[in-house]
Nucleic acid binder design. Structure first.
Length: 224
DNA sequence: AACGCTATCAACCGCTCTCGC
DNA sequence: AGCGAGAGCGGTTGATAGCGT
């Protein structure tokens, strides 16, 4: 006789406020990670993935809710042009926004043919986007990533970090990190995969020659 | 008021990646 | 080197709110 392991029925669907409270308390007490055991230890009958998603997208601190600002829209458009559907990376550039939110926003507001909430300036921009292929495609990037040496990677990263400090991105105070570097958020470890030079050049292409930053040899001025 | 259509967004699913053994 | 578990990502689905007729 084969003994089948009986898995507890996991709950699905929308989260109730009570469940949110339990998960929030649990994570604040025990920290993030080990999501598989969260459902057992917290008493939530939810899968680890579900708990992780709920925490990441709705419960963790500094989540920014509400409408996207014009600058955020603009940034999403530019980054999508550059990176394609790499929502986590794009969200990493938008303080307080999650990959899911960015993805949803793109699919409902910005995707080709959807122009409902695009303002006049963005409409022009959107016309350049249809059928957009990322300048650095996902697969290409993956290949690139696996090649460059660690030293080179650190070099590129530090260059990028240095550049981002000069960005002047309008973010409400609660969402600004203490060091005043607007983009230093918890997704920051992802940043090594940005080749700063490629990014820089790509943005210049998007903006057109006339917008080529003046301080080419020094720190980049605001690129978007 | 009732119905149908559309837009929005929360959540799930399947896959890949990473890390420890 | 190979394997398994956990984590993360992007695509997709389903519920529902909002709007027009």
């Amino acid at each position: 006789m084969e003994m089948k392991e009986v898995k507890p029925q996991l709950k699905k669907g929308l989260w109730k406020p009570e469940e949110d409270r339990i998960l929030k308390n649990y994570v604040e007490t025990h920290g993030e990670g080990n999501w598989a055991s969260v459902s057992q230890k917290s008493g939530l009958m939810r899968g680890g993935k579900s708990c992780r998603l709920r925490w990441k997208n709705y419960l963790r601190p500094n989540i920014k809710r509400g409408r996207m600002s014009d600058e955020e829209k603009d940034l999403i458009i530019r980054l999508h042009k550059l990176l394609g559907n790499r929502w986590a990376l794009i969200a990493g550039r938008l303080p307080g926004r999650t990959d899911n939110e960015v993805k949803n926003y793109w699919n409902t507001h910005l995707k080709q043919g959807k122009t409902t909430t695009i303002g006049p300036t963005n409409k022009n921009e959107l016309q350049q986007i249809p059928n957009s292929q990322p300048i650095c495609s996902s697969s290409e990037n993956n290949n690139e990533e696996s090649h460059g040496g660690k030293e080179e990677e650190l070099k590129v990263r530090s260059l990028w970090m240095e550049d981002t400090k000069s960005f002047n991105f309008d973010v409400e105070p609660p969402f600004l990190p203490a060091n005043n570097a607007p983009f230093f958020y918890d997704d920051e470890p992802l940043m090594p995969i940005f080749d700063s030079l490629a990014l820089y050049e790509a943005l210049c292409q998007i903006n057109g020659e006339e917008n080529y930053p003046q301080e080419v040899s020094g720190h980049a001025t605001r690129l978007w």
